[in-house]
């Protein structure tokens, strides 16, 4: 179903945007206190349009907020990478690089979507993903080829996130059913690998072989952290059913 595929995509963007927004006011330098919310805004903006479109196609009267605030963690369909906690700046930047390195070619392909809303989102998101890659990629290089401590933290991040990469390229039944509206993720691995290889070479980082691939996000099988994130995010909205904000 197209609306479910849009929901998966919207969940990816909202969850990652929310994680980035947790940095606001706590970043390592003022410039990053501006950059991180900026990227969060890009992602949340994309999520809003996708939720609205998903709700419209579903036709059950759910708007963007009903979809974002009134589903629990078992109903969220984001891939596991985006819900990983911020940990430190190295984890955050690598997570961002991985996501943007997939989503840039994804949105490029989606510019030819048969759905005009998806087409519109794609045109804007392609540019955003290009600068997210640049921003996060430059940080991965600085940290990987910076001090001993930063290189060690970067290697830790690479090791910690490795098991979440393969799942990003899975196409759920809903996504496959949305052919023509949304691109196939499986087709984009080559472009992703090329982006990561270029950054990792500048960062003096090795691509580790993941010991296994952790999956489950598209089936609503998440890590425990997502429930806490949603508990915070949804608390006020749920305290006032039906209220308009």
């Amino acid at each position: 179903m197209v609306w479910q595929a849009l929901l998966e995509l919207a969940d990816d963007h909202l969850v990652l945007g929310h994680r980035l927004s947790e940095w606001c006011g706590h970043a390592p330098m003022l410039e990053e206190d501006l950059a991180l919310p900026n990227m969060a805004l890009d992602l949340i903006g994309t999520a809003r349009t996708l939720y609205a479109r998903a709700g419209e196609i579903e036709g059950a009267g759910r708007d963007e907020d009903a979809l974002a605030y009134l589903r629990g963690e078992r109903d969220y369909r984001n891939c596991l990478l985006v819900e990983r906690p911020n940990e430190d700046f190295a984890h955050t930047m690598l997570r961002q690089l991985y996501f943007a390195a997939l989503m840039k070619p994804y949105w490029e392909a989606a510019m030819g979507s048969s759905d005009p809303v998806v087409q519109g989102v794609a045109g804007k998101a392609v540019k955003e993903m290009a600068y997210h890659i640049r921003h996060a990629g430059e940080w991965v290089i600085r940290l990987g080829d910076g001090t001993e401590e930063s290189a060690a933290r970067m290697r830790d991040a690479v090791a910690a996130l490795a098991i979440y990469v393969d799942e990003m390229f899975d196409d759920s039944p809903a996504a496959l059913a949305a052919a023509g509206v949304l691109p196939r993720r499986a087709d984009l691995r080559g472009a992703f690998d090329a982006t990561i290889a270029a950054v990792f070479s500048g960062a003096m980082l090795d691509q580790p072989a993941a010991p296994y691939a952790q999956r489950g996000g598209r089936d609503g099988l998440h890590s425990e952290g997502l429930g806490h994130m949603l508990a915070v995010m949804q608390s006020l909205h749920r305290q006032h059913p039906g209220a308009v904000w």
């Binding site: 947790e22 606001c24 003022l30 206190d33 919310p37 969060a40 903006g45 608390s235 006020l236 904000w245």
Partner: peptide
Amino acid sequence: ITRAPSLRRKAALLAKVQDEGGHGL
């Protein structure tokens, strides 16, 4: 920011706080 009750308000608040940081800069 993490508890804003609608996505519209969440985006507006993020943008506002970002503006304040920009003023600081």
